[in-house]
């Protein structure tokens, strides 16, 4: 039994290989990019607009609002990263209704890659906002004794991010696969619907957590309380 689409190998050349994860990711990237391009090709700045533009506007402004709610002062700056995280994870889980499709987020490699991106993005935005010294100082807050714990927390939450998303997505796919063998009718549909819901929730949690980490890094002490709250999710 295949646990991850990584095992679905299409092409291999020594170290390089083209597995299911990468192929499905490309497919999702293609859908997202081409779909956006098609809709935004003829955008209306007037009061009347197409339903697709309306949908995209709702999504984008909704993400922007969520980012602002997290505590990031300039949402346009972070929407590229956080919004893409959400859209990618959400679309990956949404496409599970397509037969034969396996979500790339069901692969630990993908989630680890995303978590690594967050791990890099947090200091990146933190240094951009507070400067290198200011950002590094935040690890010694409130006292120097907290430095190792802060570093451990940084690493562990990245790991948690990766494993949480992987576990949820993988388990969803797993459950459906197992149920299909036990009760092939009706029940897999209900579980599939539940899988869609958890996929959406995971997409939300992943991007919000990333946002919270970035907010913590950019605003230092003020946002300290929030990560502790978010990590419980």
């Amino acid at each position: 039994m295949r646990l991850s689409p990584d095992d679905m190998i299409f092409w291999r050349y020594g170290f390089l290989k083209l597995n299911g994860t990468i192929v499905f990711t490309w497919a999702l990237m293609f859908v997202l990019a081409v779909g956006s391009k098609l809709v935004t090709r003829k955008l209306s700045t007037d009061l009347e607009r197409s339903p697709w533009q309306n949908l995209l506007e709702i999504i984008v402004t909704g993400i922007e609002k969520q980012i602002a709610d997290v505590g990031l002062r300039n949402p346009e700056k972070y929407i590229g990263f956080l919004g893409t995280l959400f859209l990618f994870v959400a679309l990956a889980s949404l496409c599970t209704i397509i037969p034969g499709y396996e979500p790339p987020t069901g692969s630990l490699s993908t989630t680890a890659a995303l978590a690594l991106c967050v791990l890099v993005a947090v200091p990146f935005f933190g240094i951009q906002d507070q400067g290198l010294v200011g950002y590094l100082k935040s690890y010694a807050e409130p006292t120097v004794i907290m430095l190792p714990f802060n570093i451990i927390s940084e690493l562990s939450r990245t790991l948690a991010l990766a494993v949480r998303l992987f576990g949820n997505m993988m388990s969803g796919t797993m459950i459906i696969a197992i149920l299909l063998t036990i009760t092939p009718f009706i029940f897999p549909i209900a579980m599939s619907a539940l899988g869609l819901l958890t996929g959406m929730v995971q997409a939300y949690i992943f991007s919000i957590l990333a946002g919270v980490y970035i907010a913590a890094a950019t605003r230092g002490r003020q946002a300290k309380a929030k990560p502790t709250l978010a990590t419980t999710a």
Partner: peptide, 16 residues
Amino acid sequence: TVGAQALNFLILVWLL
């Protein structure tokens, strides 16, 4: 795959 996915993600960020 991790590296490829990270790259893919960054490309997707730029595209979006």
